[in-house]
């Protein structure tokens, strides 16, 4: 018997809707589960007190400071390097063997699993360069990890600026660098920032890299040469070693809220960029 196309369509649509509902449902469940279990344990003192008794008591202040420092180091290195690379690829060169090689390297780097960055950071920064388990080692390793994200988004943002803007500037006597700074960068900034913010997000959520390169000290780091734990590492240790479910939930809730805020900012920026482009 041949099933009528209309019937097939109805069945297919039903299946697709079910799949969509379960995919979205699963993701909503994850967020809901953590927030429901964690938010009620989050308080001002939880955010500002030191880690006591390996995390059984006290707050997560050192982990917050550790996260902040680590993000500062990683983005402080990856953003300038990545944006400069993107400007080179998008504005200063034509497609050739060199760019292909560079782009291949960056694309591969994007796929390298974080544990490999962890091993790399451990051997190069912690051991060979003698930086030890420190915020600096961790930040450098994270910088290598987020670099491809920064470069790719920035390059895309630069390429989305109309060529005619460059022509106008050049025809008015702009040098190559002025073309970039005066008539390309101003319009690519939202896109570039999006990439940087996504990089911040990845630095915050990463665990494997940080454990291998920054250690997991419970003290508040006072300089970039101190060992420190990030919120993600703190959460991992609490959860894996069954130290305190309550505090694990609370840390996860703080972590998820931070990530959601950061990513929402990134998407809002990107959205604004798109709208701006349509208006122009």
């Amino acid at each position: 018997m041949r099933i009528a196309p209309r019937t097939t369509q109805a069945i297919a649509k039903g299946l697709l809707l079910t799949a969509t509902a379960s995919a979205v449902g699963a993701l909503v469940f994850v967020v809901g589960f953590v927030l429901a279990g964690g938010l009620r344990h989050v308080s001002w003192s939880f955010l500002t007190e030191p880690i006591l008794d390996m995390g059984r008591a006290g707050g997560i202040f050192p982990a917050i400071v550790g996260t902040l420092l680590m993000v500062l180091v990683s983005v402080g290195i990856a953003a300038p390097l990545g944006i400069a690379s993107a400007i080179y690829l998008a504005e200063y060169t034509r497609e050739g063997r060199l760019t292909q090689t560079i782009r291949f390297g960056i694309n591969c780097l994007a796929g390298v699993p974080s544990i490999i960055f962890g091993l790399f950071g451990f051997i190069l920064f912690v051991n060979i360069l003698g930086l030890g388990w420190s915020v600096l080692s961790g930040g450098l390793s994270l910088a290598a990890m987020i670099l491809p994200t920064v470069i790719r988004t920035a390059e895309e943002a630069l390429r989305s600026v109309p060529t005619s803007y460059r022509d106008v500037a050049a025809s008015l006597g702009a040098t190559r660098w002025q073309v970039v700074t005066k008539s390309v960068l101003p319009y690519a900034i939202p896109g570039i920032l999006t990439g940087v913010i996504l990089g911040i997000g990845r630095s915050i959520e990463e665990t494997a890299v940080v454990i291998f390169t920054a250690g997991s000290a419970v003290q508040t780091p006072t300089s970039v040469f101190d060992s420190a734990r990030t919120m993600a590492v703190h959460f991992y240790i609490l959860a894996r070693e069954g130290i305190s479910n309550e505090n694990a939930y609370a840390t996860a809730a703080v972590l998820i809220c931070t990530i959601l805020i950061i990513n929402t900012t990134a998407y809002t920026l990107m959205h604004r960029l798109m709208r701006g482009r349509r208006a122009a």
Binding site: V30, V31, E205, F235, I256, I259
Partner: peptide, 9 residues
């Protein structure tokens, strides 16, 4: 957005 949730979670 959910791609940003830490894997440990």
């Amino acid at each position: 957005l959910l791609a940003g949730i830490p894997s440990v979670v």
